[in-house]
Amino acid sequence: MSGDAHQEKPEEAAGEHGDGHGHGHSPHLAHHFDSLQQQFEAGKLGMWLFLATEVLLFGGLFCFYAVYKANHPELFEWGHQFLDKRWGATNTMVLLFSSLTMALAVREAQLGRKNRILFFLSITFICGLGFMGIKYIEYSKKFHEGLFPGKSFSYATVTTAETERDLLELNVVAQKTDISRPLAEVVLIEPKAKGQVKTPAIAPGGRAINQDEIDVEIEKQSGHPEGDGLYIPPAELPKSARPPNAHVFFSIYFCLTGLHGIHVLIGMAVMVWLMVLVVKGRIGPEFFTPVDLGGLYWHLVDLIWIYLFPLLYLVE
């Protein structure tokens, strides 16, 4: 975009278009536009059309999510417990902040303050880097737990963790049981609906054992992996039963966050390109379209994350 604008000779740009604003002499004005304002608006319109296609690109994956959620809600109930909403919320903050710095970069570009544009662009870049860093932490945890998308999903690892959890639970119940008393029936009461008052189960010897109490103990005793193999700590397994198509949740998760992550990476590359343009002196109050359009792209990435975060991490 800027390349063409620069080859333009000022005399040619001035041409016969009598621009009312008196900006006709700008070297930034390409000859096929009447005014800088028109040039700016045309660029923006093109970007918005591209952003619409981006919305529809993500739309396909959102459809995947919606249809699966409608048909198999239990899948999400189970799977979302593997996602760490604390990291998700942190990433939301990082991205929102980067949106602000990007908007400020556009503003500084309009004012033509080179150093400040570079400053805000690099902050935005660093935020993108931070976002991807957190994504790396989240993804590597999933990969260590064998929670791969699609066919590679390791059911064996989940089954091992479930067996381990059952064993631990038996052990804990045995430890908490007072065997000096006469035998009574062990009844474990699991809350059926949320919010239902839990009645303590009666263990041999008349001692009450809550499911919560057992969970705390399991968390304490839950071991750490010895080798490098795939391993899920039993305490981190969801409490609800595993649905038969568990791997599909991770297909959805990795497709949506993966495509979004690729967009963040592209956005970061755009930041670098913009910084080069600014250093070369191609950006000024008369021509800041690249910064503006890069900003629109970055905000769209933010916009999509605003929907992704509650849909994947928060909704049960």
Binding site: Q39, A89, L96, L100, R107, Q110, L111, P285, D292
Partner: peptide, 25 residues
């Protein structure tokens, strides 16, 4: 200052929006 092209968003307004976004989060 009046921008050559487009509209310039005031910094205070942008910070207000960020505040609102964080509260909503």
């Amino acid at each position: 200052p009046h921008p050559v092209v487009g509209h310039m968003t005031p910094t205070v307004l942008m910070l207000t929006i960020l505040t609102a976004l964080l509260f909503l989060t």
